[in-house]
Design a protein around this nucleic acid. Structure first.
Lengths: 189, 189
DNA sequence: CTGAACCGTCAGTCTTAACTGACAATACAG
DNA sequence: CTGTATTGTCAGTTAAGACTGACGGTTCAG
């Protein structure tokens, strides 16, 4: 009772979860504040306005606003307006699988596609270079080209993997995997 | 001929690939230098020593050494000694799937497992708190606990997914996915 | 139309991560 | 065993990224 902050169980549960989610977000390449705001919105049944978020998480108004903007760009937070209230409220997607699916789709668009284009450019350049050379240099360039292609093939398979995930979608992924695991049981370790 | 640097095709192919791989590494949460060193070792048929790497990539000796240490800790680079030569050489795993597999296993160990433990702790704490409360507070805490559990369940499914990947292993993953995709064709978009 | 409440933006500051270069530790030829 | 070549480490510096807080723009009740 003397120290209310550490004694409110509701708040402590929230804090612990927010911290964990924040760390997961960072592993995923998302910054700390963005992760914390996302976690708070996930836990809160009602939608929240910018200042409430900032106050709750002890961050600046500007930081909260920027974090919300990011989360909306990722498609995991929605803007909500309440009739008769001037404020803008925000709420998070509550189903983790939906959220994850959305995130993967967005990352594919923003990050995977552009980098794959550059990879193919590099492979094309390598092929051109090897065809324009003679003798020993040609051999060396062909070997180099082979390496680039090998990596490009791998990357392409990886993208296929993402595409299957996106096509199958939502909560069915786990089932897909379990089935796949039975079809192709592990051999060694 | 006047500017040898930009005219050596072999070097330019390498540079382009190194740059792309470096960016992919950064998306993956690995720092730029580490990615570049890894890319260089992947492309180079012979093993390389620290100073050659540092000179080729225009980075300091210390940076090259630290990057190599990281790559060895990730299990994607090996130390090699040549008889009659005092230097230590390093070479990279050349098969991308093997490399990827190793990386996933290591990330699971370092990052996923610890964070999952903390998540379960948080869920346990939430459960305890809700059971220790009464009336309206109890209801609120139970709802909160439900949210934490929902996320924990999702996270657990995600870890299962990783485990299947690790069990199936290597180049067979793509085939697994393709089979899975046929079994569970996409419905909407 | 006016003013208050609120949100979005961004220059400047602060914090965190990466890199360098000098020194310590190590390995090995002679 | 000794001297030298080479790798490993880490304190200090530099670069990158995140956060704050003040300002301008927008919205809407009155």
């Amino acid at each position: 009772m003397s120290d209310e902050t550490t004694r409110d169980p509701h708040r402590e549960v929230e804090d612990r979860f927010i911290e964990v989610w924040s760390d997961i977000s960072q592993l995923w390449g998302v910054n700390k504040s963005v992760g914390r705001v996302h976690a708070l919105l996930y836990l809160t049944p009602d939608s929240l306005d910018i200042d409430s978020i900032a106050e709750r998480l002890q961050i600046s108004h500007g930081n909260a606003s920027t974090s919300i903007r990011d989360l909306m760009a990722w498609g995991v937070v929605r803007r909500v307006t309440k009739p008769g209230d001037r404020k803008t409220f925000f709420e998070a997607e509550k189903d983790p699988w939906t959220w994850f699916h959305t995130t993967i789709r967005e990352r594919r668009r923003r990050e995977v596609v552009p980098v794959m284009e550059r990879l193919h450019e590099a492979a094309g350049f390598a092929e051109g270079a090897s065809k324009g050379a003679k003798g020993a240099e040609r051999e060396a360039l062909e070997e180099l080209h082979g390496k680039v292609e090998q990596f490009a093939d791998f990357a392409h398979e990886f993208v296929d993997l993402i595409d299957v995930f996106l096509a199958v979608g939502h909560g069915r992924m786990a089932k897909v995997f379990r089935t796949a695991a039975k079809l192709f049981p592990k051999r060694g370790g």
